[in-house]
Nucleic acid binder design. Sequence first.
RNA 1: GCCGAAGUGGCGGAACUGGCAGACGCGCCGGACUCAAAAUCCGGUGGGGCUCACGCCCCGUGUGGGUUCGAUUCCCACCUUCGGCACCA
Length: 795
Amino acid sequence: MDTYDPKAIEAKWQRVWEDARAFYVDDPPPGEEPAGKFYMLEMLPYPSGNLHMGHVLNYTLGDVLTHYHRRHGLHVLRPMGWDSFGLPAENAAIREGGHPREITERNIENIERQMHRLGWAIDWDRVIAAHDPDYYRWTQWLFLRFFERDLAYRKAAFVNWCPHDQTVLANEQVIDGKCERCGSIVEARKLEQWFFKITAYADALLRDHDLIDWPERTKTIQRNWIGRSEGAELLFRVDELDLDVAVFTTRADTLFGATFFVLAPEHPLVDEMIERSPNGEELRTYVAHALAKRGEQRAAGEKTGVFTGFFATNPATEARIPVWVADYVLMEYGTGAIMAVPGHDERDREFAERFELPVVEVVDEEDGTLVNSAQFSGMPVDEATREIVAWLGNRGRGRPAVSFRLRDWGFSRQRYWGCPIPIVYCPSCGIVPVPDDDLPVLLPDVDDYRPKGKPPLASNEEWLRVPCPSCGGEGRREADTMDTFVDSAWYFLRYPDAHDEREPFSRRLVDFWGPVDQYIGGIDHATGHLLYSRFFVKVLRELELLDFPEPFQRLFHQGWVRQGGTKMSKSRGNVTAPDELADMYGADAVRLYILFVGPADQDMDWTEEGIEGIGRFLRRLWRIVHEAAADGGAGEDGDAGPLVRKAHETIAKVSDDIGRRFVFNTPIAAVMELVNELGRDPSAPGARFAAETAVSLIQPYAPHIAEELWSALGHERLWEQPWPVADEDQLRRETFELVLQVNGRVRDRVEASVDESEEELVARAKASPRVQQHLDGKEIRQTIVVPGKLVNIVV
RNA sequence: GCCGAAGUGGCGGAACUGGCAGACGCGCCGGACUCAAAAUCCGGUGGGGCUCACGCCCCGUGUGGGUUCGAUUCCCACCUUCGGCACCA
């Protein structure tokens, strides 16, 4: 027996697998799609150049499941790709020189090497990269399909502008009013921007949560993000303008308490009011100030506002109530106008107090019924809400309505390193899509990536000027690029047909492999990538490009690997290189350790203390299995004995943990227990079977050592061996340890037979001297028997 | 403020459906091997108390209450930590 040399055996088996194309999966020929496919996917990495422990956790989890399902006979697709567009490479190019493409491709090479080093079972034939024209050609093609259906459109909008990165950010990329990437305070700018109409799918995105097996908290986050509110749209008359102005409210029951009316500064009516109002100048100044500050600033401090000089008529009371403009009302939500009910809304009350506006109580908070509300007085809130809307509806002044918090997805980016938007602006034809046959619109080289307030592509005059595809006149290309979330909103559909040159993916192959059966990734993508991908699949299904309603059938979130209490990430530079760890302890040890330290869905503080213990375990396993292989008792399959029984129990435990419970740390502990027991006597009966079982069960975690030991045991190709099945007979026990309790406290334990009747078990309890001591002649009031477990005597 | 998750030895954690709290590992302590050390192997290790000893008793899963023969597990209230949303009408 040689000593355990992880480096040597890991390199050896990685070569064997590659030569055997062990983890490459073939597409089925047409008409022969077999049952039992499994599409395993982890979120694709941004190729930052180095793997960190978060990646190791993510992809090792996927690897365990890949091996587990493969060995259950499923056709497992498990690909890998690169989310290779995006700011970090561009910023690195600005900082250090070079081209983002070169930087990205160098990083990919390095990270791919590190992935190979860890021995993950990946189909490397299907690699895709967002920045590869063979890929982004189809991103552009899909954009055009959205454009044709008006699901991608252009509008002037206030956007989140990062002054440092000189680009627009999605709402999802703004954290506490700051740029998620660089931390600069985000400013408001009004720009022409591209949007995807994700709001048109708000209801479908909520409804189809029922179809998918996702963590409840992820669905909750999405539900809150979409923010569906049921209420009513009510019309308020503004006589001086001869107009009806709509408000959205969830509290129609408080209509009689609406004592003033507020418009958002961006509301379309405000301009006209400025023109015609006696205090137009004051209004104009206020609106200008309000528009300049956005988001966080707007929410901070005391409420501000200006009276417009106009009045609206409360449709319930017929009272003329003053119309104000105030920036606590948001244009993006509801109708951009509200009826203010200071009696029952905290914000309206604050405003009313500040500006001395009347407050009327219309709901008795004690019993939840209406007061001061004409014929609705005395009605409970729920009923009144319905009745008032119906009452207004009869007079054409209101109707039930639904409002969403979700906004359309703005995906224009004023940066270089992204997918070009295939659009040409023509003075005569307007916005003209680039014809499919002219795709891809290649990302040209530019001299200078530095942000200058306009996109880098806008400086490449030669590229920019292009004949209008429609009239042939002088057109100009769109110089913005796409948000990288567009690249990743469909990448999982490309793997099933990664090299298709005629279409983004064939309907047959995407419907065979899709949807992803098991997806793994961080919960931080709950309102970004995970929502965008669902939106894309819904649209693509309507386009009949595929036929499933949801992209990711089952979802698992790995926890954050933290270091020193902060989130570990490429941007913070606090990463531990898995590479070095693999060199010190071996890839198998790194893989085992990251899953052993705790539940995979829980955040962890990274520490290397303890990886030694995994190293010890692997050396122990190595030695004990070799001993068992040399003289592993008489035990063959089916033999009885405690070791064989323990092996079967371990099979049952590991299979249940991985397959049903989705926990990955306790299977390792279970195999350790088996090895500990085997180690007590490696020549005991059943030792060989126990050794084979331990090796077979640890294979998804530590495939290299498992393969080597499997050979030592005289077998071949463990990676394609069927997953072991526990023998039910071996799991059944004839005897068990009966727990004896007095008043719920354990007093004794005795060996009992599973065949014994309840009376016999009670008799055993009463026979125990320790139990007797605690009974102490007291009156027995109750006796509880749990067959197979315990007897509890209550005195 | 609203929504969600979590609090167990010195540490990471286990206990799945209400039934032996602390599996497995780290660390630590003791022993074997060694000239010595490392590595390895064996044993111990929640706290407190009683006992020469075999052992035995009490306390113990964030805090306080409740349900139950029995609660880490269920219910109520609270505390702490971490996430999500946040002037969303």
